[in-house]
């Protein structure tokens, strides 16, 4: 069954955009505590522009959907989250080969690895990788065990949320929060929080697709 078509990926981006808009102020407040109070505003602006670009261009190829999102985010978001989320979608677009759950998981992992390379961070640094990494692992593991994609994505979203929650006691080693040193502990990472929304959005948008 075709689960990863242009319509499904477009629905994913729409749902991510909706969640970011809904959580905009919460993301900004998390960023105000350990960063510079712009994460919600920037991602909201960028995802809204990505949705507008998808509506204007209506790409038919699944990879073209991801690439349109990537270039729009790189053009509009700025800061660290623009290049990082942009690179995630760009690498995912390049790695997308096929239309089943396994192809989706491969694309998402390529996106994750792109973020690792661009940001030169690793898990445990209190960044978006702390949500994306566990999500990729959970997705691969569930699909490997023969679970259907929507169940696997639900498990991935749970893993992302756990990873996000685990950032609270961490001392940041990358990004603006690292300037605070020990004072960054005790706060949930805004990047891991928005990355969890990205995985949540996939679980919601691709539910019932196999």
């Amino acid at each position: 069954m075709t689960v990863v078509d242009a319509a499904g990926l477009t629905a994913w981006v729409h749902e991510f955009t909706r969640l970011v808009h809904e959580q905009r102020d919460a993301l900004t407040q998390l960023d105000a505590a350990i960063g510079d109070a712009d994460h919600g505003a920037n991602l909201d602006r960028g995802t809204a522009a990505a949705v507008a670009a998808l509506e204007a261009q209506a790409p038919e190829e699944p990879a073209a959907v991801l690439k349109t999102v990537a270039t729009t985010l790189i053009k509009t978001v700025g800061g660290a989250s623009g290049p990082l989320y942009g690179t995630f979608f760009l690498r995912a677009a390049g790695a997308l080969d096929g239309d089943d759950g396994a192809a989706f998981a491969t694309a998402v992992r390529a996106g994750y690895e792109g973020v690792v390379a661009r940001g030169k961070a690793e898990r445990g640094d209190k960044t978006m990788l702390d949500a994306l990494g566990p999500a990729c692992d959970a997705l691969d593991e569930a699909l490997g065990a023969g679970k259907p994609l929507d169940e696997a994505l639900r498990l991935a979203a749970d893993a992302a949320a756990q990873g996000r929650d685990a950032t609270v006691p961490m001392v940041a080693r990358k990004g603006r929060a690292s300037y605070l040193g020990e004072r960054s502990a005790g706060h949930q990472d805004p990047g891991a929080t928005s990355a969890t929304l990205l995985v949540e959005a996939a679980a919601t948008a691709l539910a019932g697709r196999g």
């Binding site: 712009d38 602006r45 790189i74 053009k75 978001v77 700025g78 800061g79 623009g82 290049p83």
Partner: peptide, 11 residues
């Protein structure tokens, strides 16, 4: 000039 406290974009 980027947005307030946000770096400019590559373009």
């Amino acid at each position: 000039a980027g947005e307030v406290f946000t770096s400019p974009v590559p373009d």
